[in-house]
Amino acid sequence: MEKAFLSQAEIDGLPGTSNGRVNLSEQERDILGEIGNINASSSSTALSEILKQRVLLDAPAISFTNLNELHQRFETPYILIEIEYTSGIPGKNLFILKSEDAVVISDIMMGGNGQDVTCKIDELTLSAVSEAMNQMIGTSATSMSEIFDKTISISPPRVRLINVKEEAAQIEPDKKEVVVISFKLKIGELMENQTMLVMNLDAAKEYVRYLVGGTADGLAG
């Protein structure tokens, strides 16, 4: 099966994971992993309700890279859905899907069984998978807001179909270092996808400081 996500080995091979360039303490990693866990578990619960399928999660993989490099690792073509946090927590969520999986998800959301679907991506398919992501992240924002006692707002989803590597290279010219907390989602027997929480490294460190009792600038809301 062709894969549109990174294996742990590939994630480990990303720049910054092993060369000591990134300075993140064990505690900071733990806290970020836990934020990722809460985020991914409640989003996967929402997805499971939407699709009426069991959704399984792997343990989080934390890696350091930049968005430009991250995107070039995914096998094209793929669908990228992004939702940014607009207040309460820094960063954004990425959902990486293969085109054929998006068609299956949208078919199930419209009452089908996801079988024998023709692999045609249209506006409605993209709108359906964006709405799935919106409900996933909305649900996880609710859980996190309860745990951290803070209102968390999100942007509307932005969806893009990335056809070729060159496009992937252009999506995010930014070479700023980010921390990526990623999870593999196994949806029933249907598919495996990848969901990621991405934060600028500085913002992530500041957020961890805030959570452990300090203060953080720039965390509006």
């Binding site: 929402a46 939407i50 919106n134 996933m136 909305g138 649900t139 609710t142 309860e146 209102t151």
Partner: peptide
């Protein structure tokens, strides 16, 4: 009808004049 079921937002919506709040999905 929103995926954002946070208590603060539900209260804001009701205060603004909404009658009910359904959480997606």
């Amino acid at each position: 009808c929103s995926a954002m079921g946070q208590q603060a937002l539900v209260l804001d919506a009701i205060k603004a004049g909404a009658i009910d709040f359904l959480v997606k999905p």
